[in-house]
Write a protein that binds this DNA or RNA. Structure first.
Lengths: 209, 209
DNA sequence: TGACAATGAATGAACGTTCATTCATTGTGG
DNA sequence: CCACAATGAATGAACGTTCATTCATTGTCA
């Protein structure tokens, strides 16, 4: 091949996936037609089939991309200076980067798909286990968690944290459309902080909180 | 048909909704055809249209039914003798009554549908607000929560509890099929108890937990 | 350099299938 | 016999996928 070589093919794939994310979030996997995606991407239907075997493959690729994005979030959380800051990053990952309700709706759909597509389920499980392991380690090493963890082990704490994060993400899809990304972010932060204070705040401070 | 005749109309509706729940949980709203539902119910396609205007109406009726089921769960939770028991009821509602992963998958799908169908979103919001109000009141009146609430208000505690419950429900759809309803129930209970001990256990006991 | 051959990205009409919905027909209890 | 429950073949729209075709770009040889 003799194009501006290295990024032309990946660009097309990426362009298609970008369009697919918008469509999937707006209409869901199975209500999105290949025509919807091609229109959103500004290309023809046929071209999608040059880069993806079929619609399933587009969904799988989206799930893969989600995996990569989650591990980036995890990296950022690992490099935060405090445990609270890590939690804040984990809880707001989905309402700052892109336009607002897109990501949440996509992730809820992904779980919904996972419940009946074993391949997607494996992938989501894998993402979750990696992220859980990362956060468990984060907690093990955090000085804040040493003497204030309410008698729970790091892994138990991580499980609670992820449950709350998933639950808040689910709530996010119910938010009225008027709510801005910033307002949403603020709500997520509130809950993250409350959870932090429940799990990690020194007991001495609890009475005045 | 050979049933008691007087309630034949409600029976048919109910029969159709029962079948729809099974299909929706197995395949999702939009991958379930009207033929799937009619086959599961053991009736003809056309008959569904005698009792429901269209497929959307079936989905709406399912959401309505979900609303009623949630308020029953809430009633049971209200009549529990301890706050911990209430939490246990709220957390295991979906893995005891019917065969296991059916309800969880349906609820995740319901949220997914809510993200793009304002009518469903309103209904789910309404369910959630009612339930939140109920649990908030529950906490306000519970003696356990009087001096041990980690500085959080009843409504803030309720929000955390519901986030965890939703998050665990989401996790439930990832469980491998081999896992039995009892095992699932046990996992949910563990988390409910951990959350309870974080939020409500007297601080004096925390060190030894 | 210029003429021509080869490439393969891109198109979109067409195909076979599936689906929600309709309705003419049949069965049934009173 | 009538009113109504129930059927399922028929309909047409929408879908995922295919493929013959176009055409800008690149490679080649005189």
């Amino acid at each position: 091949m003799s194009q501006p070589p290295t990024d032309s093919v990946p660009d097309r794939r990426c362009q298609i996936l970008d369009a697919a994310l918008v469509c999937f979030a707006k209409r869901g996997f199975h209500q999105t037609s290949m025509h919807d995606i091609s229109a959103e991407a500004g290309i023809s239907v046929g071209l999608i089939y040059r880069y993806f075997e079929n619609k399933e493959a587009v969904i799988s690729a989206m799930a893969d991309r989600h995996k990569r994005e989650i591990s980036e979030v995890l990296q950022r959380a690992k490099h935060a200076r405090t445990l609270l800051e890590s939690l804040e990053i984990l809880f707001t990952a989905h309402c700052c980067e892109e336009e607002s309700p897109v990501v949440s709706a996509f992730v809820v759909d992904l779980y919904s798909e996972a419940s009946r597509n074993p391949q997607v389920a494996d992938l989501v499980r894998d993402v979750l286990e990696t992220a859980m392991a990362g956060v468990t380690e984060l907690i093990s090493k955090a000085p804040e968690a040493q003497n204030t963890a309410r008698g729970l082990s790091p892994i138990e704490l991580a499980e609670l944290i992820f449950a709350v994060a998933r639950g808040m993400l689910m709530l996010d899809v119910l938010r009225p459309v008027e709510m801005t990304a910033t307002e949403r972010r603020e709500r997520q932060l509130q809950v993250a902080r409350r959870l932090w204070s429940c799990l990690f705040k020194p007991e001495a401070e609890l009475a005045y909180a």
